[in-house]
Design a protein around this nucleic acid. Structure first.
Lengths: 212, 212
DNA sequence: GAAGTAAGTTACTTGAAAGTAAGTTTGAGT
DNA sequence: ACTCAAACTTACTTTCAAGTAACTTACTTC
């Protein structure tokens, strides 16, 4: 039952690794029970260390949340920047969606925390809203490029915004369905998801007055 | 600056009225700052009374949340029961959707609290998810009625189930969109929801081999 | 107009979580 | 094999919110 580490049963970790672990664990606990319902002792215990370690690395409880926010947000922005290189709008939509869904599933906990940190006020909420805005903005921009050249950009974006949410919601619910329904093949799941996506894209195009 | 009340500047309210007020105020504060970040003293002060009043009416802090949940949930179930009287499946689906949107407008704060209570564990989360499950079930039954008479019910329900999830997932995400996007009219929300619904219904019908 | 009860208060106890000071272990370099 | 810093702990203080006991005020009803 040895943990990792340079040698023996040493539980010590270099700072960078411990920080990463603490952030991961904190994200999961904050997502599961809420920020205020999770104590620093809880987080520390789940990491196998004690509270003062967290304070020495992150300063305070809001400081821990802030660090989580910055790290996750920066990763997302990096990914979105890569997507921007894809020239074709529809290909970019699919790739971006894929990226967002992948991120949502790989980092569900972090994103739940960020989304719920956005409510309320204070500098953290501002920062969180900034990242969310970036995410939504990227989706909107991409979807809006399906509009005909004649349509003003701002109008196209506004028209398209509810569909961005609906798409992500449907995708997330689809996974939940897959988890709750026994005996469904992956192929079936993928096929269904794909049909839903096609239908949504068709809908968006029609709404933007593009002949399909 | 007289408040209401039988006579003079009396701030006393009969129990039913005070309970309703407390629930309303608590819903708003829980929605704004989160359940754990809101103290009973805060709620009491915002109501113009003191803490022991809330304890005498609701027993505990979880008790207050539970009461909020039950009241809002019961109202929803009542509404759904009324929908069951509509014979035509498609009309029933539309009426149900409209009901959800109406509730969302009238009780924004309560629904925010319920949606966030669904995450996490504990009896309250179970209860909240129970209301959601009831919704999904109702939707499933109704969607399955779109199937041709020859198709066995169990098969129809199974075929339709991913769409029930997707539809409600999209609706949930749509709610989030509405909650996060200022200045959207109700007409606009309904229209968008209706278009998404149209697309989903067409998809479902095709999947059930019904000619549109 | 006295009595009873519902609405409300003050003032407390308790428990838990944020934050900290001062000390101990361990490993890496010279 | 010594030293020094980084990783880590124990053992506190402080603060704040949940929950309660005992008391007061006002409305209703006969």
């Amino acid at each position: 039952m040895g943990e990792e580490g340079p040698r023996n049963g040493s539980r010590r970790l270099p700072r960078a690794a411990r920080e990463a672990q603490i952030l991961q664990v904190a994200a999961e606990m904050f997502a599961a029970q809420g920020f205020h319902a999770t104590s620093m002792d809880d987080v520390a215990a789940a990491c196998g260390v004690t509270k003062p370690m967290i304070y020495s690395y992150f300063g305070s409880k809001p400081g821990l949340l802030a660090a989580l926010l910055e790290r996750t947000g920066a990763e997302l922005l990096g990914g979105l920047a890569l997507m921007a290189a894809i020239p074709d709008p529809e290909a970019r939509i699919r790739a971006t969606l894929d990226l967002l869904i992948t991120r949502l599933y790989e980092q569900t906990a972090s994103w739940r925390v960020i989304l719920s940190a956005m409510r309320g006020d204070g500098p953290l909420a501002e920062r969180a809203r900034g990242y969310r805005a970036a995410l939504i903005h990227a989706m909107l921009i991409t979807l809006a490029e399906l509009a005909p050249p004649g349509l003003h950009r701002a109008i196209a974006r506004r028209r398209v915004s509810p569909y961005a949410y609906a798409l992500l919601g449907a995708a997330e619910a689809g996974s939940e369905w897959w988890l709750n329904t026994p005996g469904v093949s992956r192929v079936e799941t993928t096929a269904t998801a794909s049909r839903v996506l096609d239908a949504m894209l068709a809908l968006i195009r029609r709404d933007l007055d593009i002949p399909v």
